[in-house]
Write a protein that binds this DNA or RNA. Structure first.
Lengths: 230, 230
DNA sequence: CGCGACCTTGAGCACTGTCAACGCGGGTGG
DNA sequence: CCACCCGCGTTGACAGTGCTCAAGGTCGCG
């Protein structure tokens, strides 16, 4: 964590796609890929020669910890950029959650382009800053004491994300494309704990499932209250 | 969380201070401030007109959650930049932990400078990327199941940080400038839990305290093992 | 329609949160 | 220079929550 200098909103909406000129500059460098679900995009600690940008679908970024647990750092949605590296190697492993289409951009060429195009670089700066804020929200999620509280905050995040991407959606209906196990690894709890707390929230009439990957929020105020428990 | 495009190391060491030319450009804009310990630098949800950079001392960035808990997002050290904003307002509250000297830079002027100086902007991009990685490490810390595991990872982070800043230090001695309560709020546990697990680590001969704010790591391998518990 | 992956539910145990009391130590004022 | 005092840290007891292991149930894809 650490510093966090730029206000995305003041600089234009970072979650929006780039301008047409920027798109053209980038697509000159990029390769478009179609990737089936459950596919590893890259593995941690391998040579990081590319940056990726999602055109459609959902990706998860994770790391297996000593001790056997798997920690999911983030879920990535259309418009998101990924390919975090350190010492020239990827930090996390990334895998598709759904079928995905993505742009693959050579990192060296992108670096040159950014140095020549300060405006485009500023977009990237805002994007990373935005992701830093998201990361801090994730940490708050995980640091919540109860499983129900974590899940409630997670739902709120998915809801915010969904509507910021202006997805075609039923009001108060939230898409949850990942499995219970993925949610568990993201929240730092067991899959059983996820099951138990969703069951309790359903029985309390706060949420309802319409299929395994769609939640409807029935009582937003109460959900907020669950999330706010010490 | 989300995307994470740039490899700090490949682009030059981001944790290092800026080059002399960059420093001169920046200090033209900056005001140097001396701030006593325990001072609020700015409060969350207030107008974000400045970015700050630490010349010396330690700062904490936190947010009080509904429910009464306080979540510390990060500790900031010399060379770190802070002032994260969203919609033109600061996201967190920041307070000095020790006596601090820092640079205060008007955000508008900085934005202009960055657009005119792509090289300097790239430094900032790397810095934010670095902080994103740190934030992910923080999340792993917090998601660890046991208090001892969280504390062990926290210590490792402080150690890495300390030596990356090339602090004058005794080998295996780690400076812990913050209080137990601050550590608790950072790790998402109670202050009592921090006390209990440090006591256990001391009794196990894994660490030793030389004063309240200095730890010596006696058995690094065992500390690693504690951190790796499921 | 059937198989397999995913999800749910249950019982026992370990750990942390909470509340409360005590100990320690540095700073301040007499 | 000394004694007090208050912030900070430690320790103990009890209740609550999640983890683990195990078994049963359900959805969706081939």
């Amino acid at each position: 964590m650490r510093a966090i200098p730029f206000d995305v909103t003041a600089a234009g909406v970072a979650t929006q796609l780039l301008t047409e000129r920027h798109r053209q500059n980038l697509t000159g460098l990029a390769t478009l890929l179609n990737v089936p679900r459950r596919t590893i995009v890259y593995r941690e600690d391998t040579l990081a020669r590319w940056i990726f940008m999602i055109a459609g679908g959902v990706v998860k970024s994770f790391r297996d910890l000593p001790g056997g647990r798997r920690h999911i750092a983030c879920f990535l949605f259309p418009g998101d950029v990924f390919g975090l590296a350190e010492n020239g190697q990827f930090v996390n492993t990334t895998q598709t959650v759904t079928d995905v289409t993505l742009y693959r951009i050579p990192v060296d060429a992108l670096k040159d382009l950014l140095r020549r195009d300060p405006d485009l670089q500023f977009r990237f700066l805002c994007k990373v800053t935005h992701q830093l804020r998201e990361s801090q929200r994730h940490t708050i999620c995980v640091s919540t004491r109860t499983a129900a509280g974590k899940f409630a905050l997670f739902l709120k995040m998915l809801q915010r994300d969904g509507q910021s991407r202006a997805e075609p959606s039923v009001p108060r209906s939230v898409a949850v494309p990942m499995t219970r196990a993925d949610i568990a690894d993201y929240l730092g709890i067991s899959a059983e704990a996820v099951s138990r707390c969703t069951t309790r929230l359903v029985r309390s009439g706060i949420i309802a499932f319409t299929g395994r990957h769609h939640v409807r929020i029935l009582n937003s105020a109460e959900l907020e209250r669950v999330a706010a428990v010490t």
